[in-house]
Amino acid sequence: MIDINLVEKTEETKNLIIKCKTQLFPVVRIPLTELQYNKLNGRIATWISEYLSDKDSFPNNPQEANMIIEGFIQSSNSESLKKTKNNIELFEQQEAAVVLKNGVIVDGNRRFTALRQLSREGKGQKFNYIKAVLLDSEDYTPKEIKTLELNLQHAKEERVDYDPIDRLVDIYRDLISDDSPFTAAEYAREVDSTEKAVLQDMEVAQLMIDYLKYIGQPLMFHIARQQKLDGPLREAQRILKSKKIDEQDYKDARDIIFASIASFDGDVTRKVRDMKNVVQDSKMLSDVIEELDNTLDKMDKNFRQQDVAKAAKETHTVNVPTEQKTKVIEVATKYTERKKLSSAQKAPIESLKKSLDRINDVDTEAVVRMSADDIEEFSEYLDRIQERVNAMKGLTNAD
């Protein structure tokens, strides 16, 4: 809890949208030593996950915990922190933060970090304080505080600098988890997005949760960050939402994509994209599942071994045994290439289908009403089409 006796008034004010209305709040100066980072801040979600995978909890000492989280802020986006720090050193803090009376920062973690570093570097006593609006958490529900945080973090375009996986973690917490406070429509409104875009993000976030379960690392968000899963998962979402995949085939299609993501190296996003036509072909998907059935079982058992879980804690990633990895890549590549070849072989048929559609679009009643000159030109094109048809019939030995 902040010692109110250490808080100094300023002449500044700040507008905040809270409880669905804009209110003017006074800005005060608070000693940095009275504040603590918000451990639920979305921008460091995967770093918190990584820390807690090694430790049971954060230190009880607020200053010790602050030093740990400051490291996360530094690592998560060092360039943005550097810019903020340089700006504050040159022009002092221009924009007030928002903190709760218990000392937890709602908005302004990067400014807090910059000030802490400038203070430690002896840049001047003025950097020992942060300017902030001070809110009493008892006056607001947790949802109202979170709504305010979303408003502040998304109000300016340049502030939307989440790591893509940290962004998905926030989506999971705010919209999917059992105690999630928002509907998609509410969230879209608060972050100035569309409900359709938010629903799509929810699908990708759910795939992240499902993938981490698949590899035996539920809610270990740092592994998703380490494997740079945003691109592959977004590609997977586009593939799996297709109506070409029957409901009964969905889990098989998803598991094949997950096994591939876990096995592929290099440009994983492109390689997942290449599998689109394979998993959307029910017969080919069945063939892939049949060939990989034993391998997928082995992978599942491997993911759940204690030594694999222990290694994941140390390396923050999950590796597929070479034999299984090679088999998945081999089968996925074989069927991807087979599908590409099949599509290329059918390309002439698709072209003819399109040509027939265009001919069927010709208005025969309009043909009857054409002038003599237009009829002559029309007949010329018919003759040229007939010549091409006859030539192609000759190629296929058709009658």
Rank of each mutant, 00 (worst) to 15 (best):
341 L>N: 12
331 V>S: 06
331 V>P: 11
26 P>Y: 12
56 D>M: 05
386 Q>S: 08
329 I>Y: 05
308 V>Q: 10
385 I>A: 09
280 Q>G: 00
316 H>I: 09
301 K>D: 06
265 D>L: 09
123 K>I: 05
153 Q>N: 06
12 E>A: 14
376 E>N: 14
218 P>N: 04
381 Y>F: 13
244 K>A: 03
2 I>S: 06
142 P>Q: 04
234 R>E: 01
45 A>H: 05
28 V>E: 04
378 F>H: 06
68 I>C: 00
307 D>F: 15
389 V>R: 06
363 D>N: 15
291 E>D: 11
360 N>D: 07
111 R>A: 00
143 K>L: 01
82 K>Q: 02
348 P>L: 11
306 Q>F: 14
99 V>W: 06
317 T>M: 10
364 T>G: 04
357 D>F: 13
390 N>D: 04
289 I>C: 06
272 V>E: 03
263 S>N: 06
188 A>L: 12
149 E>W: 07
229 L>V: 10
349 I>L: 13
285 L>C: 00
331 V>A: 03
176 I>W: 10
339 K>N: 02
341 L>W: 02
34 E>Q: 14
27 V>P: 07
187 Y>K: 05
295 T>W: 13
148 L>P: 04
61 N>T: 13
225 R>A: 05
360 N>T: 09
156 K>N: 03
30 I>A: 08
394 G>R: 15
334 K>V: 00
399 D>K: 15
326 T>V: 14
40 L>T: 09
328 V>W: 09
334 K>D: 05
366 A>G: 11
163 D>I: 01
95 E>G: 12
106 V>F: 04
258 F>S: 03
43 R>S: 09
135 L>K: 05
172 Y>V: 11
154 H>V: 01
218 P>S: 07
120 R>H: 04
330 E>C: 07
12 E>F: 15
366 A>S: 13
312 A>C: 12
249 D>G: 11
203 E>K: 15
305 Q>E: 12
